[in-house]
Design a protein around this nucleic acid. Structure first.
Lengths: 252, 252
DNA sequence: TAAAACAGTTGACGGATCGTCACTTACCCC
DNA sequence: GGGGTAAGTGACGATCCGTCAACTGTTTTA
């Protein structure tokens, strides 16, 4: 209530961001197992007790970390989904956004499966989990909306088999699967390395949409050229960050 | 060398299976975090020291556990891949095998992502990891072989885009992704529950192959009927285990 | 047969980490 | 400046991992 206490409150809220910054650095440097609450407390120059005022437990930290990363993805997704393009072109742009996200923030690809797989959700606070789900749901919704748009325009019909939800779940699971395989860093289908996997995802995404008959099919339109154009225009900043030469370094 | 020492040796080798049985039971009952070496030692009625003669560490136990489960999958896969059917029908049979495996051994679906995601591989012994990779590679190879067969017969052509490896990686990652999402038990695309996800996988697998133009396309052949037939014949045992009525309970 | 050598087994222990809580410190208001 | 409240601390108990010196039972040797 008092002015001072307001300032304090703000400080505390801002501090959380710093905590997450440091947590992320530790995870990147020493891996998920390398992140301990003692270490994090020391890095923040606060005590463990204070840390536990912000986060219910270690899993809560991871949850918060992931949410922050997912917000970035959501931003990329929404930028793609708001482009003025026909639906299938737009979903291709969104695919590019997904790829850029993975390449820009590989730490996400490493953390996400960990969080999903192990029993982190069981221990993290309900609020954090909900907050995380909300972002992911919005990402999913962004994709779904495009599919429904395609259906509305008649570029895409489902007759009696499948639905926009089916199709988008297919894209989604392929994306999740590639990330998981990619983060393992060995096993089959890792022979070609990360670049091969990303290329595979791009190609298979296109083939899946072709399989649903979403016009224009991948042999009816030069999606590769669209990709290059988007990298030069809408996603120029991201492309530059990745040092992708304008047109040459596209996979395959 | 002596007869007695041989008997002992055999006993020790067999003991490992028992250890894994008990470990699996604990994981199923109390989750991955519920599995402690102390608990496992107590369950085995041996001491922790003896346990550590068999396994380098806790991660090694999980690795061994997973390998044993994967061997079952491999068996199912190979049975499917040896059926006398045209390639695309055969890969559909293999898809059914994958689905049966997940439904028969849901614990695998729960353990597999955990192992892949977290840093278990970093700690488990090299031998266990290699053994595990080997099985997975064989599974992958079984699928790949069918694709190559289809290519050889001319049912499937890649022109300049894609390859059998691309395509199979697509199927693979979709499978892995669905399992991961399924094991999380919440988030988007979980709305419909596990059955929806499996159905989605089936449908999207077919659509992906359609997208590659693998004949006969899913609207040129009654794959649903093939599925029913396989459940009655080749996979009757498994279907019975799952209490799938012969023809009625197919998803969708 | 007794003693020595060996293989197999044990569980107490050190080390690491988590999460808590009784206590201290800092800040504010009167 | 004194009293009250909010913020912050770090020692502590609890849990779990993985080790190793000691122990037990069996085989080999003398």
């Amino acid at each position: 209530m008092t002015p001072i206490s307001d300032r304090k409150r703000r400080e505390i809220a801002e501090r959380e961001e710093t905590f997450l910054d440091l947590a992320l650095r530790i995870v990147l440097e020493q891996g998920y197992v390398g992140l301990t609450m003692d270490k994090l407390a020391e890095a923040t120059e606060f005590s463990k007790g204070t840390l536990y005022l912000h986060f219910k437990n270690k899993e809560d930290v991871i949850c918060a970390l992931l949410r922050r990363l997912q917000m970035v993805r959501l931003d990329l997704f929404q930028r793609a989904s708001q482009l003025e393009l026909p639906p299938r072109q737009r979903i291709t742009a969104l695919g590019l956004a997904a790829e850029l996200f993975v390449r820009l923030y590989p730490e996400n690809a490493r953390i996400e499966p960990i969080l999903k797989a192990s029993s982190i959700r069981e221990k993290a606070s309900q609020e954090r989990c909900d907050a995380l789900d909300e972002v992911e749901l919005q990402c999913f919704a962004a994709v779904l909306e495009i599919a429904q748009d395609g259906q509305a325009r008649g570029d895409l019909t489902f007759s009696d088999r499948g639905s926009p939800e089916h199709m988008v779940t297919g894209l989604w699971s392929m994306h999740v699967g590639v990330n998981l395989i990619s983060s393992v860093g060995c096993g089959p289908s890792q022979a070609g390395g990360e670049a091969f996997l990303q290329d595979t995802l791009y190609e298979n995404g296109a083939r899946l949409l072709d399989g649903y008959g979403w016009r224009p099919l991948s042999n009816e339109f030069d999606y590769r050229a669209l990709r290059e154009e988007l990298l030069r225009t809408q996603f120029a900043t991201e492309a530059k960050q990745l040092k992708l030469a304008d047109s040459s370094t596209a996979p395959n």
